[in-house]
């Protein structure tokens, strides 16, 4: 790993100032970034840890009933503290990686990285969450822009994520057994303003909404409404773990399981 200067600001303002340095990089929990640095895939001059910023951690409810999670909040804390507010979201956080990864990994880090197999992107897209940065608010539909690509600009960090609470929702992950990442994961939600189905792990474009399933579930919220339905395999990821055809098939199966789990 190349060396860098490590700074741990205790306020958002100080973090933004530190990130203005040339080649500065924000560090959430480091569960993806540290292995990437070891592989010399990045060479930041300054690493700005966001872990010491109290205003960026914690789980609460806002006036509109949304569950608001600070960008530097770890998966373990979300799994524990969001359980009473939004059980499906808490359950999703409790399935990420393994217990030690959940101690360190953060929601802001996961969303900013937008790994095509990560768990948080489908939760944000599947609820129509609002992603708050130090500069603006971005709707989930505009935030995700393809594999490892987001609407975030240089020096922009996720300070908070606001999730509208679903009437019914579940996340089901078909885990790749070695990495624990989703081979296919589906967040299916009946929101007050309509059905949303978001899929991770499957597409070469990263997380996406499966609109065909959303339409079928809008007519009837039941696993049976999806009988025979699966997306096409064009544009699905093919690797040594699964072919595009297998992933497309799994999207249908896992979505039915998610609707069944949501009740």
């Amino acid at each position: 790993m190349y060396d860098f200067e490590f700074v741990r600001p205790t306020s958002l303002e100080a973090a933004i100032a530190a990130l203005a340095e040339e080649d500065a990089q924000a560090l959430g929990g480091g569960q993806t970034l540290i292995p990437s640095l070891k592989a010399r895939l990045a060479m930041p001059s300054v690493l700005v840890s966001l872990a010491g910023i109290a205003e960026m951690t914690g789980v609460c409810r806002d006036d509109e009933g949304r569950v608001c999670i600070g960008g530097a909040t770890t998966h373990a804390v979300v799994a524990r503290e969001a359980a009473a507010h939004f059980p499906a979201l808490a359950a999703l956080a409790g399935q990420i990686g393994d217990p030690a990864v959940r101690t360190r990994g953060t929601i802001g880090g996961s969303l900013a990285n937008n790994d095509p197999s990560a768990c948080y992107p489908p939760a944000a897209l599947g609820t129509g969450a609002e992603i708050i940065t130090n500069r603006r608010s971005i709707g989930a539909d505009d935030f995700f822009q393809g594999m490892f690509a987001t609407a975030l600009d240089e020096g922009e960090i996720i300070t908070e994520v606001r999730f509208p609470v679903a009437e019914k929702a579940a996340y089901v992950k078909f885990a790749q057994p070695a990495s624990r990442f989703a081979l296919v994961g589906v967040f299916a939600a009946r929101m007050p303003d309509g059905v949303r189905v978001a899929v991770t792990g499957a597409s070469e474009d990263g997380v996406f909404r499966w609109t065909e399933a959303e339409e079928a579930l809008s007519r009837e919220w039941s696993p049976e409404a999806l009988t025979g339905l699966a997306p096409g395999s064009d544009g699905m990821i093919g690797d040594l773990h699964a072919s595009p055809e297998y992933r497309a098939h799994l999207v249908g199966v896992v979505t039915r399981r998610a609707v069944e789990a949501a009740g």
């Binding site: 490590f6 741990r8 480091g30 569960q31 540290i34 292995p35 070891k38 690493l47 840890s49 872990a51 373990a76 393994d98 217990p99 030690a100 990864v101 101690t103 360190r104 070695a178 990495s179």
Partner: peptide
């Protein structure tokens, strides 16, 4: 050394952490 095997797990403030996936300064 790629944060998968768990041989390096220690507790930080009582919670499990992979010590190969955390900087000393953290």
């Amino acid at each position: 050394d790629t944060s998968q095997c768990g041989a390096c797990i220690v507790h930080v403030d009582g919670a499990p952490v992979k010590a190969c996936a955390m900087f000393a300064l953290e």
